[in-house]
Design a protein around this nucleic acid. Sequence first.
DNA 1: ATGGTAGACGCTCTA
Length: 259
Amino acid sequence: MPLSLVTWNVNSIRARHDRVLAFLDRHQPDIVCLQETKVEDDAFPMESITGAGYHAVIHGQRTYNGVAILSREPAENVHCGLPGDPEDEQARLIAADIAGMRVIDIYVPNGKSVADEEKYPYKLAWLERLQAFLKEEIARGLPLALCGDYNIAPTDEDAAYPERWAASVLCHEKVRTAFQGMLGLGLHDAVRHHLDAPGPLTWWDYRRLAFPKGDGLRIDHILVTEDALKRSVDAAVDRDERKGKQPSDHAPVFVYFDR
DNA sequence: ATGGTAGACGCTCTA
């Protein structure tokens, strides 16, 4: 069996508790990066996760944001938070060494709208700080995977209806430039490497009947260094996880690696 | 027709 690495924005670990456990049981993934856990660390359902046979490292906060990495093997050298702004207390990044790989789990700020004078500049500045952090992390030399909800659809082929989203913070030129900048650091889009465009879609808004209408975007990504790309053998999106009762608005994204 | 849903929290914000 290949090693499986997953990223999934669950939109509240407590609201998605049963779905997460069913997901772990069904797929038996090796490493799972979660975003939008929306819970302080004291209230994270740690017993459920360990009961399912997983270690967890967590970086949460009340109400918003929050990230966690679940793994079969224990995590080492855990790092919480994106450096570069001492005033920034939003819990959007956690990193750890797992199974010989550096795994970085990110929840990039949404940015609200391009015209927003606070949230969109925060998103762009956050992406700048991320690039600086990535340079240091890549320099450590381990195979590296940057997994998460990037809130960026890198090209028009990453939206089912690109014209509807052209003016959005998910498709705007400046965030697409930031995505290209990460590729410029030596990272590769592992999902795109294995799966042809258009898609695969990973997020459908709860509103406007977006899922039944097929109005989704590819905003959840796994970027990897070249050594990890060479070890990767396939990728997938579990679109079925968006169906049924009380789904997250995001589907889990998988990349598989030779061990 | 210019809306709509979901989650956490508290009567509103974020996505």
